[in-house]
Structure formats: C-alpha cells, structure tokens
Amino acid sequence: MKTLKIIKIGGNIIDDGKALASFLSQFAQLEGPKLLVHGGGKLATQLAQKMNVPVQMNEGRRITDKDTLDIITMVYAGKINKTIVAQLQANNCNAIGFSGADGNSIVSVKRPAKPIDYGFAGDIKQVNTKILEVLLHHNITPVFCAITHDKNGQLLNTNADTIASELAVGFAKHFKTELYYCFEKNGVLKDITDENSVIENINTETYTRLIDASIIADGMLPKLNNCFHAINNNVDKVCIGKPDMLFKTHSLYTTIQK
C-alpha cells in the first residue's frame, strides 16, 4: 500500500510570497502521492476592508455573511488556489485546484445558528475520495481550498485544518496516510516565547494534562482536536511543525499519538 502525504499549510506561509515559493518548490519534489490543503491567509480580510465589508470575528473564527462568503470564495478558491497550482506547475508538479464542490469531494452542512450564528460556515458530513484516487494514481496532486458545499447549491466556508483531517481519515481506507500541519512554529510549544520548547510527543493523556495546565489553549485547541480525530481514525502519522519536518531527517516537530 502506498503512503499518501496530506499537507496543510497555514496563513503565515501563504502571506509571505518567498516562503510560499520556497515551500512549493520543496513540496513539488516530494515523492509518492500527495495532497495539499491551504488556508486563506490575510488576503480575504484585506480585500474585505477595501470593499468596505465588515470583518466579523468571534474567538478567532470568521463570521461568514453573504458578502464575506463571496469574498472568501474569490480569494480562497480563486486567487490563492490558482496561484498555488500555477507555481506547482512551474515546479513540474501536475496539480489541480479543488473546492469541496469539485467532484462532489466534500459535502458539508451549514452550522446551526445557536449559540453563535457563524453564517455560511460549513461542518463536514461526507468526504468522497473516488475521483481524487483516480488523480493520485495518475500522479496528479489535488490542491484544496477551504470551501465546501451542501449538495444543494450552497458554498460554505470550512476550516482548512478540519478539511485536511477529514480527507486523511477518508483516504486511510485506501492508503497508508500521513497528515502534516505546517505553520510558522517548530511544533506545539510548552512556552510560546521559546521556539525550542517543543513538546515532541503528545498522546490523549498528556493532551488532557496540557489543557488543564493552560499550556494548550486558543487556536491550538481545534488544531489538536483535528489531529486526534485523524490519529484515532486510522491515519498512520500526524505531525505539527514548520515545513522543514517534511524535508529534513532531524527537524524538530510534534508527533501526535493515541
């Protein structure tokens, strides 16, 4: 059984043109089947401000009204996704851009409006890997943005970390699957001010202790919840850290364990 690498890159890489170009050059050279998931970076917020569309957030999560959905669809599924695909083609990596609507690959439902109305936010209900498997077997790399659909014509804004996790779980039936969350830190840190305080291994027991001690909090909580969802549903390997962990044998990063 082949090993499929599913890699999610965060906004900080997307926001930095040099960092993105460097990452994509290295990503293109990874051998074997691979799939890329990307977030939105700051571009959607900047465009919303230019268009005088209010940016509404709650605890770090974007509230997606109709105007905001239009903007993030243009930015995520358009500008960012196609720029990434074009750069991969320039690096001789044949890639195709995807939203969840393409190939009916990811079906979501609109999140309930209570206790907080997040607007057109989508919670994933189904991942369909068949069309993606065909592409992977022909050495074509799918590149997913953070947009899904509800099978009734409605696009939905969906967390990119969750998309990566659900895709990894879906593919685990057919591939040995590895999931990597790449962002600007070396991994999960004991001390947010110390880049070298990486917690190299986290299992369910230590995760609970780290939450109780408030070492893991805020935006790292949903990311790690997605990690544990994957590792508890037959994904073989889940790691968090800088992109270096994909390319260097002795890189520092966090590994998630059962």
Rank of each mutant, 00 (worst) to 15 (best):
Y76F: 11
T193Q: 08
H137N: 15
A28R: 04
I6V: 15
E59S: 08
A168R: 09
L167M: 11
K237M: 12
L136P: 06
E59H: 11
K173Y: 10
F175V: 07
N234A: 03
G40N: 00
K248F: 00
D16W: 10
K34V: 07
S108E: 03
E133K: 15
K2M: 14
K237W: 02
K34P: 01
E205N: 13
K8W: 07
D150A: 14
F171H: 08
T129S: 07
I124D: 00
S25R: 04
I9P: 05
E178M: 05
V85W: 00
K125S: 12
G153D: 08
E133W: 09
Y118R: 09
D15V: 00
F228N: 01
A213R: 10
L4F: 09
L189P: 11
A217W: 10
A121P: 03
A230K: 01
I199N: 11
S165T: 04
E200M: 08
L24W: 09
L24Q: 03
I116Q: 14
Q87C: 09
P33D: 00
T158R: 05
N234L: 01
D150G: 10
N94F: 11
Q56Y: 15
N196F: 12
N232G: 00
F144Q: 02
P222R: 09
D65N: 07
V109S: 15
G40F: 02
E59R: 06
K79I: 15
A230N: 05
Q89K: 11
I240F: 03
N58I: 13
A21F: 14
K34W: 05
I124H: 05
S251R: 00
G103M: 02
L88K: 04
V134S: 12
Q154N: 12
A113V: 06
A77K: 01
V198I: 06
A172G: 04
I202M: 06
D67G: 02
V188L: 01
D150F: 12
L167V: 13
A101Q: 14
I84Y: 03
I211S: 13
M245L: 12
I199V: 10
I163K: 10
E166R: 14
I240T: 02
